Simulated assay, not measured.
Amino acid sequence: MPAWPGGPCPRCGEDMPANLVHCQTCRELLNDDLEHDTVEIPAFHPLKELAVRIDAFPIGFFFQCPDCRRELRVHKKYLGKQVSCNFCQSSLQLPPETSKTVSQGFYTQCPHCKEELRIATKYLGSVAACKHCQGHIQLLEKPADPVDS
């Protein structure tokens, strides 16, 4: 069976390039050796919807003041710096990196509903659902390093 050599469409007259099966304008079958019913259109089967899982990273952490033992909410930009307690004004040095033993937990924003979530550090690296919207979240310590291309 020879391929379509190119030229005007027999139905609409538009010039079509070589090796086409149907006219790009009117969808006329261009090769006389083919029949319209030789190609079966497959049945449509909808796929099961997948739950969207979005990465969430800590915005800040919760630490205990060594002097007054009250809980301090500290933004991650202050890690590795000297800060003072809001309650007793004693100063404390935060670790440069958070560890699951130093931090009591962290807070982040749900990427689905934008509500703030308080999460225990033991859940870092796991998949969870937002308590407000039930959106699926993967809790990561920090974004992955960009891959050099």
Rank of each mutant, 00 (worst) to 15 (best):
T38M: 13
K122L: 11
H75E: 09
S91A: 14
C113N: 01
L140H: 04
R70M: 12
G60T: 07
N86K: 14
R118I: 15
Q89E: 14
E141I: 11
Q134E: 05
F87E: 06
K81G: 08
S91L: 09
K131I: 06
E40L: 14
V102S: 11
K100H: 09
P58Q: 10
R53T: 09
L140Q: 15
C113P: 04
R53F: 00
D55S: 05
E141A: 12
L124V: 05
F57W: 09
F63P: 01
R73G: 00
Q138E: 14
P66N: 04
A56Y: 03
L47T: 11
C88N: 05
L117V: 03
Q134P: 01
P111T: 04
N86Q: 14
I59W: 03
C65M: 05
R53D: 03
Q93V: 11
F87Y: 15
F57D: 01
F44W: 11
A120H: 14
D145L: 14
C68V: 00
C110H: 09
L72E: 12
E116Y: 14
V74C: 06
P66L: 03
R70G: 06
E97Q: 09
H45G: 00
V83K: 03
I41G: 02
T108H: 03
N86E: 07
G80N: 07
A129N: 09
L124M: 07
K81P: 02
A56E: 02
G105I: 06
E40N: 08
L140I: 07
D148S: 15
K48M: 11
G60V: 04
E71C: 05
F57N: 03
A128N: 00
G135T: 01
Q134G: 02
S84F: 14
T108Q: 04
S91V: 13
L79M: 13
L72D: 03
G135S: 00
S126M: 06
S90I: 10
R73T: 10
E49A: 08
S91H: 11
Y78S: 11
T121Q: 13
V83D: 06
A51L: 11
C65I: 01
H112W: 09
K77F: 15
E97K: 05
F61Y: 15
C113K: 05
C68G: 03
G105F: 02
F61G: 04
I54E: 08
K48T: 11
K77P: 07
K100W: 05
E141H: 12
T38P: 00
F87P: 00
Q93W: 13
K100P: 00
V102H: 14
S103Q: 04
Q89L: 12
D67C: 01
P46V: 09
I41T: 13
A120Q: 15
L139P: 00
E116C: 10
F87C: 04
G135I: 03
K100T: 00
T121M: 15
E116W: 14
F62Y: 15
Q64P: 02
T38F: 14
A144W: 02
E115I: 00
G105A: 04
V39Q: 11
